[in-house]
Nucleic acid binder design. Structure first.
Lengths: 167, 167
DNA sequence: TTTTCAGTTCATTTTGAATTGAATATTCGC
DNA sequence: GCGAATATTCAATTCAAAATGAACTGAAAA
């Protein structure tokens, strides 16, 4: 027993809408523009590769946003771009594996910040001798503490990548 | 052999300035207002408990921001508020342990989103039978895939908390 | 070559989060 | 109670990030 056409069409739309919402939300959570998540969501929901035009249509975003978002997602390794022999437009598909998404996030967001902070911390450590003897111990203890956090985060990252990887 | 006063004063200021920068940056990275990180940074840098007034002075932020930031940080468990016997103003100190910070972040940012997404996913799963037979398998596979990611993230969270905990 | 279509760029606009600060509330000593 | 000091609230403002869209580039078709 099949469902009427309206229902299946409605179901497809809702699937797309919700996936777009989920990925917009995730993008936002990780500090990316929600529209980029939305684009990934549409591609994730689609059974076929989509052109930029189709994406623009389904999401009601501008060509500019779509272009930038697609580029970003591709750099990230979250989607792939293909062009059929003798065809003007590119087609885009979502890479379904978690690894490129996660790896892209770690590489572009977390790692740069962590290393920037590592630099700052080592500069601060070199400042310690210049502090008055009374406050030096406290400062030293606190710096050690952040440094420890920092080290843990650094050792934690590859572990996280490993744990979340596969598929 | 001691350093001249200017140097030690300058060193203290730089210590504070850099710690403020580091924590602002971290707050921002995790989707919190940078000013909240800045407040934590000042407290982290200070050897003594500070009043709101002092914090406002050192950061050149408004009373309103300070009040909100302090409340947020306290809810988070990142700082503690004390009041000496017979004293109008509260004093604030940074909790130096990583655990409350991390736990607060997980609890307030990650967990709510994850469970919101869990709801959406289960709603979507119930939509599957309404899809046309041809697209059902694809949709099913994809939903399973996000669900799997989601489960992994959920099992990963407590593990992360455990790994980063202690001090 | 010229035209047409896909995609990019980037100056401008929009949007929403963060911040402000005046009004309000609370809490203390007197 | 009153007045003074401290803290909170929230409507208005500010500001930065995101989105837009017109102008542009390049590449394929005619």
């Amino acid at each position: 027993m099949e469902f009427p056409v309206e229902n299946t069409a409605a179901a497809r739309e809702e699937l797309e809408r919700e996936l777009v919402a989920i990925f917009s939300d995730l993008a936002d959570l990780f500090g990316n523009p929600p529209s980029h998540g939305a684009i990934y969501g549409v591609l994730f929901a689609s059974e076929t590769a989509l052109s930029m035009e189709e994406i623009v249509g389904r999401l009601a975003i501008s060509k500019g946003s779509a272009s930038q978002g697609l580029r970003h997602l591709e750099e990230f390794g979250a989607i792939s771009r293909t062009r059929e022999e003798g065809d003007r437009s590119h087609k885009y598909t979502a890479r379904l594996e978690l690894k490129p998404l996660l790896g892209g996030f770690l590489r572009t967001r977390l790692v740069p910040r962590l290393s920037a902070n590592a630099d700052r911390l080592s500069r601060l450590a070199s400042l310690l001798p210049a502090l008055p003897a009374t406050s030096r111990p406290t400062a030293q203890v606190r710096l050690q503490r952040i440094t420890k956090w920092h080290k843990r985060a650094s050792t934690f990252l590859p572990l996280a990548e490993k744990l979340l990887q596969g598929d």
